[in-house]
Design a binder for these strands. Structure first.
Lengths: 221, 221
DNA sequence: AACGCGATGGCAGCAAACTGCCATCGCCCG
DNA sequence: CGGGCGATGGCAGTTTGCTGCCATCGCGTT
């Protein structure tokens, strides 16, 4: 594969055989966008990255993972995420699905994995500066506004159930409690109870502060 | 170019000659990520898109443009953006730079333009489902959280002077009005007057709604 | 069927927020 | 200096929000 070539392979074995040499020796950065941590593993790259991350004193080596909300759906996944983060990786959660896995190593090599296939998964590998650079820029745009997972684990991002979301939307409309309660078919007392619960979840002492947190964390989407 | 091939060309003329046929006849969607509206124009694709957009009654044809903050730096640029939007395009502003232009047509054809070059600009064109799908997913992730420009132009982003910012920060701390007023060295009446003025600027009918708008629009940064 | 428990709804008392009114102050201009 | 005007501050009346209390209801379990 020449400097500007693009290589398409099918299956893990072919990927390793024809392009494995590109993935070892990551020096500066490993960025990855994926649905969750389980979609795909590339053994040699993972080994290379793991040894880098174990050398915690290594300055300047960044691991940034952009995952979809599916990555947080169960407790085992969240535990795994905590482990990855404790090794120095930074994780952010996108608001969209990310059905394709994209890996960029040292802004030089890019691997794109097709959707999970029943037989052989298709991978595209490239060192084209235009392709790598363009995709990296889009990754950066998505990364910049994705939710930082450290904040989630530090309890800064509350989980809101359907009741809370309903109340939140009513509050966001700016109505009085009486009007909002009537619109939701609740008694005023129940509506206010819901509001108080939402405020507790948001750790907010005033309605302005509550609205601020919702807006900043984009909890109303 | 076969179905899974990737084509790299240099210069506009070569791009048109070898791949121009791919760009005409857009049927459903045109998405573009770029620094601003002036970085690059592809004549045949632009013509095709313009005629689609002029046929305003055409149902289901979407034009989504993700631009960097540079796109808003001067009045001429903003006027141009208004024109593009009046023709039915949706525009959002990313928080990052987007130095590469990425175009995806009907989720089938992708064009990636390299950085502006002194001589011949490099373009990469592909119909590879893995490449197009992967990049499209990243575009979606970035698009989802980018700032909608229609809101900006509809005056939804108020300008806050120093007094309003001071009050806003006090409100964000969650204190009662009495405490906040005392901390700011104002009488309660004046503080409340300031709060009412801020609410009017935010067009908010409740404190929650005001906080929400501040948080969403990142006015407290 | 009876019981327990959590959720709901009505009411009351209180706190917080909203705003009009009017006096006062500070600043600027003639 | 006097007058005008905008901003401030105190007060009062009103509205909205907060929460405890208690009765009732609905659901699940034994």
């Amino acid at each position: 594969m020449t400097a500007d070539q693009v290589l398409t392979v099918r299956g893990d074995a072919e990927l390793i055989a024809r392009a494995g040499h590109l993935f070892t020796g990551a020096k500066h950065e490993f960025v990855c966008a994926a649905r969750d941590l389980n979609t795909w593993s590339l053994p040699s790259a993972r080994q290379s990255i793991s040894s880098k991350m174990l050398a915690a004193s290594e300055v300047g080596f960044a691991v940034n993972k952009l995952l979809s909300p599916v990555a947080l759906t169960d407790e085992a996944a969240r535990l795994h995420l905590r482990q990855v983060m404790s090794k120095g990786a930074r994780v952010r959660i996108s608001s969209t699905q990310l059905p394709y896995e994209t890996i960029i190593i040292d802004r030089r090599v890019m691997i794109l994995a097709g959707r999970d296939a029943p037989v052989q998964r298709e991978f595209t590998v490239t060192t084209s500066p235009t392709l790598v650079g363009g995709v990296y820029a889009l990754f950066q745009a998505a990364w910049a506004t994705a939710t930082d997972l450290a904040a989630y684990f530090h309890g800064d991002v509350p989980h809101l159930d359907a009741d809370s979301l309903t109340v939140l939307r009513a509050l966001g409309a700016g109505h009085t409690d009486e009007t909002a309660a009537r619109q939701l078919g609740l008694s005023l007392r129940t509506y206010r109870r819901r509001v108080a619960e939402l405020m507790a979840k948001l750790e907010a002492d005033s309605r302005f502060q509550a609205g601020l947190r919702v807006g900043e964390l984009r909890l109303n989407e």
